[in-house]
């Protein structure tokens, strides 16, 4: 039940962001699905591994691979799906709490939360870069044939 809820919530918020980023109308639902599936991978791996950074990485990798796949299929740039798709993974809450601890003069907590936020952002980028490397190498192999 909780998983279905999470799926719907992440789907809706990705769709909202897709419109905010002026996605073409045809790609909005795709972007929403990419975001929701990416969040699902994040959610499940967080339950099993209990690590924000690692599970964010898996979530972003899923988003990236799905994005590249859809890009190939629809002949559109992968950013259409990836930019909105990673949004649920973006550490907005982490940034908020970092700042909250800073205001409360709680610097050690702020440093912990801030470092975590930064690593989560790096994990997202890693996931996306690795997935784009995949698709580029596939392209290269195909061109050689």
């Amino acid at each position: 039940m909780e998983i279905i809820k999470q799926f719907v919530f992440s789907f809706m918020s990705t769709i909202g962001f897709a419109v905010l980023f002026n996605s073409p109308k045809k790609s909005i639902v795709h972007a929403g699905l990419v975001g929701a599936i990416g969040w699902m991978f994040y959610y499940i791996s967080f339950i099993t591994m209990d690590s924000y950074v690692a599970s964010t990485f898996f979530g972003a990798l899923t988003v990236g691979l799905l994005g590249e796949f859809l890009a190939r299929k629809n002949k559109k740039p992968a950013t259409l799906y990836i930019t909105a798709g990673i949004i649920p993974l973006v550490p907005g809450a982490g940034a908020y709490y970092t700042m909250l601890y800073l205001i409360e003069n709680n610097f050690s907590q702020a440093a912990t939360k801030g470092a975590e936020t930064l690593f989560i952002a790096a994990a997202i980028s890693m996931g996306i870069i690795i997935s784009s490397l995949f698709s580029r190498s596939i392209k290269r192999v195909r061109q050689k044939d």
Binding site: F9, G16, N22, P24
Partner: peptide, 23 residues
């Protein structure tokens, strides 16, 4: 420009509020 400001505000609000539920 495919979306009007009202549509964008509406979907921005949808994004925010579902994000709130996600957390």
């Amino acid at each position: 420009n495919i979306y009007s400001n009202v549509t964008k505000a509406l979907f921005g609000a949808i994004a925010s509020s579902f994000f709130c539920l996600l957390f």
